[in-house]
Structures are given as C-alpha cells and as structure tokens.
Simulated assay, not measured.
Amino acid sequence: MIKYAANTFLAAKITFINEVADLCEKAGADVHDVAKGIGLDNRIGRKFLHPGPGYGGSCFPKDTLALVRTARDLDSPLRIIETVVDINAKRKKAMAERIIAAAGGSLAGKTVAILGLAFKPNTDDMRDAPALDIVPALLEAGAEVRAFDPESMDEAKKLLDGITYCDNAYDTMEGADVLAILTEWNEFRSLDLARVKRLMAAPVMVDLRNIYEPEMMADAGFTYSSVGRPWPYGRKGEA
C-alpha cells in the first residue's frame, strides 16, 4: 500500500503540472516559472514538476491502476486518482493532436521525425511510453514516421510497426515536415539547428520535453511549439 500510494502521489503531481502547463499556454504564462515558484515551498518540493507528454514506465501506470482497483474492490473509490489516470491517458493522445496541428492540421502525405521512444532517457524501457500512443495516432492520421532512440530501438521494433527506424537523429529529419521530441536524451539537447533546418522540408519543431528555449528557436527561424511556455518577442511561433 505504501509503494502504491507513493507512486500514485508522484503521478498526480506530474499530472497536476501538465494541467497547469495547459492553463499557462492559454494565459500567456511560463509553466517553468510557476513550477519554480511553487517548488520553493518545502511542503511541495521541486521534483516531479516538469511538464511533458504524460507519465509512463514500469511503476506509475501500474501502481496507479492497482491502487484504483484496490480502492474499488474495498468500496472506497479514489476519485482523484481515477481522474489522474484518465487525464494521463488523454494527454498522450492530445500530444499527437499537437503534432498534427503543428503540421498544419493534416499529416496526409507528410513526414514526422520522432526523437526518443523510451519513456525516459538512459533506458530502453518502452513500458507505457508516450510514444506507444503518439506514434500510432500519427500513422492513423496518414503520416510517414521516421524515428530514432539511442537505446530503445530493439524494444520499440517489437511494439511499433509501420515506421522507419533510423540510425541517428539527423537521419529522421530528411525531408520531414515536423520534428517531435518525445524523450529528453542529452544528445537531443545539442542538435545543430542549422543542419536540422537544412534537412527538413519545413523548420517545424514540437518539443514535448521543453529542452530548447523559445527565444533560441525563434532566432534560429523555427516554428516552435513547447509545453506551457509563451512564444517570445510577441511573435507567433505556435503552429
């Protein structure tokens, strides 16, 4: 029970900051400022306040569902956690819709470059990774998907059909109409943006891990979408 409760609390914290990020986008606020501010409160803390495409992995999805089932079996439902599970599932689908919107609202005949497939960096773990929901949604929308992950390619091939697995990050970008970052691997943090721009059919990036700064992407000439952050300089960068 302690393990279930602990992991469920952390999953709820991630889901909370993801919802706040959505609100920040509407309000013109920066979710990182909000996260930093509330994280200064020792009762809350700074960890697990980074917005993204939803939680995954071997523990959080399993333990949240286990706690929900246990509570229902004992006729003591946990409505908050039921909502967390539902929001997280819907968020992954919403991230696919964000990528589609960045490509102009349709992916028919278009190519999407995907960087990162594992649920987090420094692992090949694909269990409940956001990519498992996002990539099929892109394929269903008519996209050609080219993907690269430094560690999880072998595992991904067992779970994701119909996509092209590339040898490196830049190979995914050849002729791509939109580039989406799903996992915050360190090697993706220092891409040669000029090279990326030359390779792509259009300089459009959807950064679901906020590893780049909007100001830098604006100056580099990209149409850039991130999670919970405003576009700089009063210029429209969101697709």
Rank of each mutant, 00 (worst) to 15 (best):
A6S: 10
A180I: 01
L191I: 12
K13Y: 08
L193G: 11
R195T: 14
E174Y: 02
T83V: 07
D22K: 07
L193S: 10
A102C: 02
L65A: 14
N186S: 10
R195F: 10
I134H: 03
L115F: 13
Y55E: 03
I211W: 03
M126D: 04
N122Q: 05
E25H: 02
N42E: 14
M216I: 15
V112S: 07
D22R: 12
T183S: 05
D41Y: 02
V206T: 08
E187Y: 07
P61N: 10
V85I: 14
V178Q: 08
I38S: 09
A27Y: 07
D167I: 02
G39M: 01
V112I: 07
G162C: 09
M95E: 13
A113W: 08
K13N: 08
A202Q: 08
T164C: 10
A194C: 04
A218Y: 15
M216Y: 09
S106V: 02
E25K: 00
V206S: 06
G116Q: 01
T83W: 01
E144Q: 09
F60I: 13
V227I: 14
G162A: 04
K92C: 13
G104W: 01
Y4T: 08
V84G: 12
G57D: 03
A102S: 12
M126F: 02
Y233W: 00
L199F: 06
G109W: 00
E25M: 01
D125G: 14
M126H: 02
A102E: 04
N7P: 08
P77T: 12
I87H: 13
E213N: 09
S152T: 01
D167L: 06
V20P: 04
N18E: 01
K236Q: 14
V145E: 07
R91S: 06
D177Y: 00
G52K: 07
I100P: 11
